[in-house]
Amino acid sequence: MLNILRSHRISRFAVIGGASTLVYAVCALALSRGGTGAAMLPATAASVVAYAIAGLFSYAGHKYFTFMSAGAHAFELPRFALLNAMGLATAIALPVVLTERLGMPAAIPIVLTCIVVPLVNYIVLRRWVFRDV
């Protein structure tokens, strides 16, 4: 029974995480024009704005759908914000290094952010943010 619940949670995480990642990627690519043509924002700024938008979607989705948490916002939101800040640091650092310093297209750090952040998030959300208190 525990394995079934765990697989359902992972499936729900994948749905919310995938949707959040898609929100991030679409916003970041649209704002930076994917490294082609005249960008609305530099790659780093586009990544920050996109990450903030995706973060709002992610908190609500994971709290109410993935982990179905009844925990207090006062407890969970600061922890989620800290985790999100670490993900945001990744979303900032990768474009700074890869796009601004190494001249790679904006799509490369966006894709890397889309891989690394969700992997870390599941572990931390499950064990620290939305854990049963």
Results as ranks from 00 to 15, higher is better:
88 L>S: 04
53 I>E: 07
12 R>G: 08
24 Y>I: 02
107 A>T: 08
93 A>H: 08
42 P>H: 04
3 N>W: 10
70 A>L: 11
58 S>Q: 05
42 P>W: 01
13 F>A: 10
129 V>K: 08
27 C>N: 04
97 V>E: 13
87 G>N: 03
28 A>Y: 12
4 I>S: 15
129 V>H: 08
17 G>W: 14
129 V>D: 05
48 V>N: 07
93 A>D: 08
132 D>Q: 10
38 A>H: 14
56 L>H: 06
62 H>L: 11
115 I>Q: 04
85 A>Y: 03
112 L>I: 12
35 G>P: 00
67 F>S: 05
102 L>D: 02
106 A>Y: 02
65 F>K: 12
59 Y>Q: 00
54 A>S: 15
71 G>M: 07
105 P>F: 01
50 A>S: 15
82 L>C: 05
110 I>Y: 03
118 P>S: 01
52 A>C: 15
42 P>N: 01
78 P>Y: 11
129 V>S: 11
19 A>I: 15
125 L>P: 00
56 L>W: 11
75 F>S: 04
5 L>N: 09
45 A>R: 06
107 A>R: 07
99 T>A: 10
44 T>G: 09
75 F>D: 13
88 L>R: 03
30 A>H: 05
102 L>S: 04
61 G>F: 02
54 A>F: 08
83 L>C: 11
41 L>S: 08
23 V>G: 09
64 Y>D: 01
92 I>T: 13
98 L>R: 14
36 T>H: 06
78 P>Q: 02
51 Y>I: 02
114 C>S: 11
34 G>S: 10
118 P>G: 00
47 S>F: 06
130 F>A: 02
50 A>V: 04
43 A>N: 03
97 V>P: 12
125 L>I: 09
133 V>A: 14
8 H>S: 12
125 L>A: 14
114 C>H: 05
100 E>C: 13
45 A>Q: 09
69 S>T: 10
37 G>Y: 02
87 G>M: 14
2 L>E: 15
3 N>K: 11
122 Y>M: 14
87 G>C: 11
33 R>Q: 14
49 V>G: 11
4 I>V: 15
129 V>T: 11
16 I>E: 00
44 T>M: 12
109 P>H: 05
122 Y>V: 13
126 R>D: 15
126 R>T: 03
55 G>V: 02
34 G>E: 04
31 L>N: 06
27 C>E: 03
45 A>Y: 06
131 R>P: 01
131 R>A: 12
